[in-house]
Computed example of a mutant assay.
Amino acid sequence: MPVCLQKGQKVSLTKDNPGLSKVVVGLGWDVNQFDTGGSFDLDTAAFLLTDSGKVSRSEDFVFFGNLNHPSGSVQHMGDNLTGAGDGDDEQMKINLSVIPENITKIAFTVTIYEAEQRRQNFGQINNAFIRIYDEVTGDELLRYDLGEDFSIETAAVFGELYKNGNEWKFNAIGSGFQGGLAALCANYGVDVE
């Protein structure tokens, strides 16, 4: 039975699962039936952060344009252009055992592609969630349903994996940003062209 988290709640992933190294982070959402003149394309990204709360290099930003971290610790499983269907819309495989030593946190974000041009925002998104399951057994370890707290935001931080001593924990964040992917990149120290 997975742990269902509330906003701001933290839970250890590895304490009750010794030896856990390979997990899958699944993110999903449904789109309200508003006609915005275009389909919704939501994009998942992971920012691998140091103690400073920033990336140490551009390769620490894993997204549809950079699917694999050089260390092999984070692998984006591909861009879903529509969000149609049930279950996870996008997934990332995480290998906890090869995350570089200087990385202490991984933030999982979702942005709306071309949100301004398409007049779209997270207020038009329903049933957004992030979940983590054991890649080997398929057991779901935790789940966080974001609820409907958003209005005009075009980007959101769903949650964070972070290192606490020798264990990996998860923090349910659920905070929105205006300014889409560019705002997230600026926040996490990624230079955008």
Results as ranks from 00 to 15, higher is better:
Gln120Gly: 00
Ala84Asp: 14
Val98Gln: 06
Asn171Leu: 15
Phe108Asp: 03
Val110Glu: 05
Glu167Gln: 14
Thr154Ala: 05
Ala172Gln: 00
Asp149His: 12
Arg143Phe: 06
Glu167Arg: 11
Glu153Met: 08
Glu101Tyr: 05
Phe108Arg: 03
Leu161Tyr: 02
Ser151Tyr: 12
Asn164Met: 08
Gly78His: 07
Trp168Asn: 06
Val157Leu: 11
Ile152Lys: 15
Gly165Leu: 04
Phe122Asn: 01
Gly174Tyr: 05
Glu90Cys: 12
Phe150Trp: 08
Leu81Gly: 10
Phe150Asp: 00
Phe129Val: 03
Gln178Asn: 13
Tyr133Ala: 08
Glu148Asp: 14
Ile99Tyr: 07
Gln178Ser: 15
Ser97Ile: 03
Thr104His: 08
Arg143Thr: 09
Phe150Leu: 08
Gln124Phe: 12
Tyr133Thr: 07
Lys163Arg: 15
Gln91Val: 12
Asn80Pro: 07
Thr154Asn: 04
Glu153Phe: 10
Ala172Gly: 02
Leu81His: 08
Gly159Arg: 03
Glu114Thr: 08
Ile99Arg: 04
Gly165Pro: 01
Gly123Trp: 05
Glu140Cys: 15
Arg131Val: 10
Asn102His: 14
Asp145Lys: 05
Asp145Gly: 05
Ser97Trp: 00
Gly138Pro: 01
Val110Asp: 00
Val98Pro: 00
Ala156Asn: 10
Val136Ser: 08
Gly78Asn: 07
Glu140Gln: 15
Phe177Pro: 00
Asp86His: 10
Asp134Lys: 00
Ser97Val: 07
Ile103Gly: 09
Asp139Gly: 11
Gln117Met: 03
Ile132Phe: 05
Leu96Gln: 06
Glu148Ser: 15
Val157Lys: 01
Ile152Trp: 09
Met92Lys: 09
Thr137Val: 10
Glu148Tyr: 08
Thr104Lys: 11
Asp79Ala: 13
Glu90Thr: 13
Phe158Val: 15
Gly78Phe: 13
Thr82Pro: 06
Leu142Asp: 03
